[in-house]
């Protein structure tokens, strides 16, 4: 089979020394095992994220995303655009959809893109996909299970799907209320998914963890508490904002609510990297503030 190639939109949080840099490390590691190539979109920009709307408005926000799509269609012609970040995927996909439905918005966006010399490059023909879609649809669970060298036996994992890979678009074949793809991925890696985990699609507060910390931390507390209540030792997620919010505020929540949270929150790709036999460093485990010790132990075994 020919090597699969994708036009890659890493997004701001995946940059070196940014909050999800370890996510990128783990994705690069599994890309070697699964033999796919990520061709970074040259000179990509921010998607506007979930908070950009207030100052940015409608057209400037779509112009930002359209610029990335145009750059991709120009430099990585014919390749599907793939994002690892949930917000990047959502923002790009939303613009792509909106422009395909409104000729007025498309014309306005192209007029703006002209200022960046890209008006003729926007075609809007390529699909916009999240990395988990690539794994599930282009490989499938069975194929993803084949390279497993070190099954993650005995680890109970809560699959925290969160919002933005799940709504409003979601992953094909999954329900909004109880998506199962993380559980299936976890199981494929040999671990034990906590299927009764009832906060798997609860919002972590998103960007409001910055601006409304008290309100958001109530959400985060629910997400962690339920994981513990159902016997999970770890939480796994597909979203950089979910990962960060659920991991880094545990100390603050402990102080405020007298809890004793200390639960690792990893990316699905980190589980995969460890199960595929990569080192802790290659799985980006040194980027976890709450160390994923069970995974580190498995990674260090010969």
């Amino acid at each position: 089979m020919a090597k699969k190639e994708y036009s890659f939109y890493p997004g701001c949080s995946s940059e070196r020394k940014a909050s999800a840099s370890n996510y990128l490390v783990s994705v690069e590691t599994i890309s070697k095992t699964l033999d796919f190539k990520l061709n970074e979109i040259p000179d990509w920009n921010c998607c506007g994220a979930s908070i950009g709307y207030a100052e940015g408005g409608e057209l400037p926000r779509h112009a930002m995303n359209a610029r990335n799509i145009a750059l991709s269609e120009k430099h990585n012609a014919g390749q599907d655009i793939v994002a690892t970040c949930a917000a990047c995927w959502l923002g790009t996909k939303e613009t792509h959809e909106r422009l395909s439905k409104s000729s007025q918005l498309l014309a306005d966006t192209k007029e703006a893109l002209k200022e960046a010399g890209l008006d003729l490059d926007y075609k809007g023909e390529v699909p916009i996909r999240h990395m988990v879609e690539v794994l599930i649809e282009d490989y499938g669970y069975e194929e993803l299970g084949k390279p497993v060298k070190k099954p993650l036996e005995g680890i109970k994992i809560a699959g925290y799907v969160g919002c933005q890979t799940n709504r409003p678009f979601g992953v094909a074949g999954e329900s909004f209320e109880n998506p199962k793809y993380l559980d299936k991925l976890t199981e494929t890696m040999g671990a034990e998914p906590v299927e009764s985990y009832d906060q798997k699609v609860t919002c972590c507060g998103g960007a409001l963890a910055f601006s409304e910390p008290e309100k958001s931390q109530v959400q985060i507390k629910k997400i962690i508490e339920s994981a513990y209540d159902h016997g999970a030792e770890m939480i796994v997620t597909p979203c950089p904002v979910c990962q960060m919010n659920v991991e880094v505020y545990q100390d603050q929540i402990n102080k405020k609510y007298n809890t004793k949270f200390k639960i690792p929150v990893t990316y699905y790709s980190q589980l995969m990297a460890v199960a595929y036999g990569s080192s802790a460093k290659e799985a980006g485990l040194n980027g976890n503030i709450v160390r994923a010790t069970r995974l580190e132990e498995i990674a260090s075994k010969k």
Partner: peptide, 22 residues
Amino acid sequence: NPTRRFAKIFWDNIASSGRVNE
């Protein structure tokens, strides 16, 4: 409103260099 103020800071941040400076 803190979210309004944060949202402005965020957009100004990305509009100046094109990418978030965390």
